[in-house]
C-alpha cells in the first residue's frame, strides 16, 4: 500500500506547485478540487490493517467535501459575484513557484529532525504535509482576493488533513474533528458568497472587501 500513499503525496506536492503558479481563479479552484479528490482517497490506503468502515466513511465525506462541494461553492461564488478571473497576486506566479521550491527543500530538511516515535506508513508524510501547510500560508498572504485566501486556507487545512490521516497510527484520532474542520471551511466559503451577494444586491458599499488583505 505504500506505493499508493506515496503516489498520492506526490500528487499533493504537484498540485501545491500548480496552485502557486496559477493566475486564473477558475483553474486554481479546479486544481484544488483535484487535490481534494487525491486526499479524499488517502484514508483508503493509509491504514495497513485493511479497510475499516470508518476509513470508508471518512474517504466518502472528505472526497465529497474537498473534491466536490467546496470547489462547486467557490466556482458558484465566482460566477454570481462576478469576481475578476485573474487573481492580481501580490507575489508574481513565477516568484511564487521558486519560493515553493525553496519551501519544499526546507521541509525535506526539517522533517528528519522530528522522527516519528513509531513506524509510519511512509517517510514522505511529514515533509509533504508541512510543505502543503506552508504553501497554504503563503497563498494566504500572497494573494489578495477574499476567495483566494479561502483557497489558501483550504490548502493549509489539506496539509493538516494529510498528516492526520497518513501520519498517525489508525484509531488514534477521531473522524469528527477533521469533518468539523471541513465544516468550518464550508461556513467560510458561504460567508464569502453571502458577502459578495450582498454587494451585488444592496446599496452597501463593500468594494474594499474584494481587496481585503489578511
Amino acid at each position: 500500500m505504500h506505493g499508493f500513499v506515496d503516489a498520492i503525496l506526490v500528487v499533493l506536492v504537484l498540485t501545491d506547485l500548480l496552485l502557486l503558479g496559477s493566475f486564473r481563479l477558475g483553474a486554481s479552484v479546479r486544481t484544488s478540487a483535484l487535490q481534494g479528490v487525491a486526499l479524499g482517497v488517502l484514508p483508503l490506503f493509509a491504514h495497513h490493517h485493511g479497510l475499516g468502515a470508518d476509513a470508508v466513511l471518512l474517504a466518502l465525506v472528505a472526497t465529497g467535501a474537498k473534491g466536490v462541494l467546496f470547489p462547486w461553492l467557490m466556482l458558484r461564488a465566482v460566477r454570481i459575484a462576478q469576481i475578476p478571473r485573474a487573481m492580481k497576486p501580490i507575489v508574481g506566479t513565477a516568484a511564487s513557484v521558486v519560493i515553493g521550491m525553496v519551501l519544499l527543500v526546507l521541509c525535506r530538511e526539517l522533517a528528519p529532525r522530528l522522527p516519528l516515535p513509531y513506524s509510519s506508513g511512509s517517510t514522505l508524510v511529514l515533509p509533504v504535509a508541512l510543505f502543503t501547510i506552508f504553501c497554504g500560508l503563503f497563498l494566504l498572504v500572497a494573494r489578495r482576493l477574499a476567495l483566494t485566501q479561502v483557497l489558501g486556507y483550504l490548502v493549509m487545512e489539506n496539509g493538516v488533513f494529510a498528516f492526520g490521516v497518513a501520519g498517525l497510527p489508525p484509531g488514534s484520532f477521531t473522524i469528527e474533528l477533521l469533518v468539523l474542520l471541513d465544516l468550518l471551511v464550508a461556513v467560510f466559503v458561504m460567508g464569502v458568497t453571502v458577502s459578495h451577494i450582498s454587494r451585488t444586491f444592496n446599496s452597501i458599499d463593500t468594494r474594499q472587501l474584494t481587496e481585503l488583505k489578511g
Partner: peptide
C-alpha cells in the same frame, strides 16, 4: 474568521503532534 481559523488549524496540527507524542513504538 480568517486569522483565527488559520490560527486554529495550526493548533490542530499541534493537537495532532500531541497525539504522535502519546503513541508508542507499537502504534
Amino acid at each position: 474568521l480568517l486569522l483565527c481559523s488559520v490560527g486554529i488549524s495550526i493548533a490542530l496540527l499541534g493537537t495532532l503532534f500531541l497525539a504522535v507524542a502519546g503513541t508508542d513504538a507499537q502504534g
